[in-house]
Amino acid sequence: MGQGDNESGARAARDGDGPALAALWADCGLTRPWNDPAQDFAFALAGPASTVLAIEREGRIVASAMVGHDGHRGAVYYVAADPAMRGQGLGRAIMAAAEDWLKARGVWKLNLMVRRGNEAATGFYAGLGYGEEAVVVMSKRLG
Rank of each mutant, 00 (worst) to 15 (best):
V76N: 02
V76C: 07
V76Q: 04
Y77N: 11
Y77W: 09
Y77P: 04
V79S: 11
A80V: 03
A81G: 05
D82W: 02
D82R: 05
D82H: 06
D82M: 04
P83M: 01
P83A: 02
P83K: 01
P83D: 01
P83S: 02
P83H: 02
P83G: 01
A84E: 15
A84S: 15
A84M: 13
A84H: 13
A84Y: 15
A84Q: 13
M85I: 08
M85A: 12
M85V: 12
R86L: 13
R86Q: 13
R86F: 10
R86V: 12
R86I: 10
R86Y: 11
R86K: 10
R86C: 12
R86H: 14
R86S: 12
G87I: 07
G87D: 14
Q88G: 15
Q88D: 14
Q88T: 09
G89N: 13
G89V: 08
G89K: 11
G89Y: 12
G89C: 08
L90A: 14
G91Y: 15
G91V: 10
G91E: 14
G91Q: 12
R92G: 10
R92M: 11
A93F: 10
A93E: 14
A93C: 09
I94C: 07
I94A: 08
M95G: 10
A96Q: 15
A96F: 12
A96W: 13
A96T: 12
A98Q: 03
A98W: 05
A98E: 03
E99R: 06
E99G: 14
E99P: 08
E99S: 11
E99M: 11
D100S: 07
D100W: 04
D100P: 04
D100N: 06
D100V: 05
D100M: 06
D100Q: 06
W101C: 05
W101R: 07
L102T: 02
L102I: 03
K103W: 12
K103T: 15
A104V: 03
R105Q: 00
G106M: 12
G106A: 09
G106E: 13
V107Q: 00
V107E: 01
W108D: 13
W108V: 08
W108L: 13
W108F: 07
K109V: 08
K109N: 12
L110C: 04
L110Y: 02
N111Q: 14
N111I: 14
N111C: 11
L112K: 10
L112T: 09
L112I: 06
M113W: 06
M113E: 06
V114A: 08
V114D: 07
V114G: 08
R116M: 13
R116E: 15
G117D: 04
G117W: 07
N118L: 04
N118R: 02
E119C: 01
E119G: 04
E119Y: 05
E119K: 04
A120S: 03
A121N: 00
A121L: 00
A121E: 00
T122S: 00
T122E: 00
T122D: 00
T122A: 00
F124I: 02
F124E: 03
F124Y: 03
Y125N: 10
Y125A: 11
Y125I: 08
A126G: 06
A126S: 05
G127Q: 03
G127M: 02
G127P: 03
L128S: 03
L128W: 01
G129A: 13
